[in-house]
Amino acid sequence: MKAVYERNPLLMGSNKFCPGCGHPLLNKIIADVLAENNWAGDAITALCIGCALNMTPYVDWDLVQCPHGRAAAVATGIKHVQKSKLVFTYQGDGDAAGIGLTETFHAASRGEPFTQIMVNNQIYGMTGGQSSCTTLIGQKTTTSGPSGRDPAHTGYPTKLAEVIAMVDAAGYVARVSIHTPKHIRQAKKAIEKAFRLQMEENKYTFVEVLAMCPTNFHVEPWDAPAYTEEKVLPVFPLGEFKTPEGR
């Protein structure tokens, strides 16, 4: 029998993420991109604070755990010392778009040649489901009040990909999702493209990944793809917002 799909050796057995969580799925997608392009031995991840921390024991390539929000600044330091390596951040929305927006924005503005991966699940997962800047209008969280996010009180979801796409020095900006096999294929292509533009053309690249958090969406894991389709995609449109070829 020929293997059609085998476990990626860059992944270490089981993980501590919740059932149906987008993180281990995205870990796997990144591991596949690294393995298929022979990049694993060059990879250094600047890892955020949050649920993503569970990635530390799960993946088998170099990681630097950063203070909350500062992954883009840490990645800047890494890349300047290891110029030929594949450096990418792995951050949640709270990390990259909330507390770390300044570091994210200025790394993009300087055109630092690394990749930022922002996992947008519209929630603070690790602390138990508090509002994020990306929380949907009407989405109920433990800090939104009983009627959910109210724009009169907390404004509207932060759309970071669209913001970063406006930065002159950004080489590639995309938003992808991973809630169906088709979207997973597109996400993988976007991440591979972002990594390639970093490695071959020294570009700053940014990929926002919409990820499922069934625990804090308050849906069954198997219903999370439909939730993403119906509620998340209308707010966070998918696509390439900036490419080297032009918008």
Binding site: L10, G41, I44, P57, W61, D62, L63, Q65
Partner: peptide
């Protein structure tokens, strides 16, 4: 951390 996956991995 200088890129050293699979066995030699550095988790800083």
């Amino acid at each position: 951390a200088q890129g050293s996956a699979l066995g030699g991995t550095k988790r800083i």
